[in-house]
């Protein structure tokens, strides 16, 4: 019961328009920066190497390379200081924490695009069905995706 009450308290501050983020995604984080009375938006682009916590405390750590130096920033994704988050690419990962990227240099830093996997297949099938809804029924969904 306590947990439900706490969740209800923070509910109004939770963002509903956030994209479904995953570890390995390359994202643009639009950060609000306040300089005196002015406010501008700065974009931090990089790979999500870890996601932590749940609910209003949910945070992502984004890693990028600036002038040959690795830079990691952690964002509370529900914070008002994070204006928007755009997903640029989905990277293929086999673990939840991509600390091994810290040791990688050059082209090895890149993650393979997430193409394979059941989740992707389902999305493709769904979209294929949608487009073919008007046209004659699809014969075999699986064969189309291969």
């Amino acid at each position: 019961m306590s947990q439900q009450i706490l969740e209800a308290v923070v509910k109004s501050q939770l963002k509903t328009d956030l994209p479904a983020l995953n570890v390995g995604d390359t994202v643009d984080v639009h950060v609000r920066i306040i300089e005196g009375a002015k406010q501008r938006i700065q974009i931090f682009n990089g790979v999500i190497i870890k996601m932590q916590s749940q609910g209003i405390s949910r945070s992502i750590t984004v890693r990028r390379i600036v002038a040959n130096e690795g830079v990691e920033r952690t964002f509370k994704i529900h914070s008002p200081k994070v204006a928007t988050i755009d997903i640029k690419r989905h990277g293929h990962t086999r673990r939840a924490r991509l600390y091994y990227l810290r040791d990688r240099i050059g082209k090895k830093r890149r993650l393979r695009d997430r193409r394979r996997g059941l989740a992707n297949l389902i999305v493709k099938t769904a979209s294929a069905k949608k487009t073919k809804a008007a046209t004659p029924p699809a014969t075999d969904d699986n064969s189309e995706n291969k």
Binding site: I5, I56, S57
Partner: peptide, 21 residues
């Protein structure tokens, strides 16, 4: 005491809060 959580204030600062019934 119900528990603690966090809320954001108007300036976007993170504030630790305690919820009491």
């Amino acid at each position: 005491i119900i528990g603690m959580t966090r809320l954001y204030d108007k300036s976007g600062r993170n504030v630790p809060v305690t919820v009491i019934e």
